[in-house]
């Protein structure tokens, strides 16, 4: 709620900050965890995709053509590592506004991915 020219205005927080001449400060977190997964990156990505679908619902998980996943249009997940070797890194990135959702992913991934999925 902002007072401007003697009038009360109800504005979005970012718009309110602009009206008041304040510069917004965004905080982002990127945390990378190691998962004990052998084989291609795509296979691990699929496992993460299915895990997220199960936990958060199919509509909330998107797969991008670059191989990354997005949860609820806000949390980014990307698997990297060697295509052949054991072990992959899973990067999870989110903003402070999505803190609860973003930070809920780490213990989920640390618990381990489900065994091989058919298809």
């Amino acid at each position: 709620l902002v007072m401007k020219d003697g009038k009360m205005l109800l504005l979005e927080p970012s718009q309110a900050m602009k009206e008041l001449g304040l510069e917004e400060h965004t905080i982002r977190f990127t945390s990378t965890i190691f998962v004990d997964e052998a084989g291609p990156i795509k296979k691990t990505t699929n496992k993460v995709y299915h895990l997220l679908k199960e936990k958060y619902g199919e509509r909330n998980v998107q797969q991008s053509c670059d191989g990354s996943l997005t949860l609820s249009d806000s949390v980014l997940i990307k698997v990297s590592g060697s295509e052949e070797g054991e072990g992959k890194s899973v990067l999870v990135s989110w903003s402070l506004q999505d803190e609860d959702l973003g930070s809920s992913l780490l213990p989920l991934l640390e618990k381990g991915l489900p065994p091989d999925l058919r298809g």
Partner: peptide, 10 residues
């Protein structure tokens, strides 16, 4: 200015 990014390892 206007942003902070924390990059950590789990």
């Amino acid at each position: 200015n206007g942003s902070t990014h924390v990059i950590c390892q789990g």
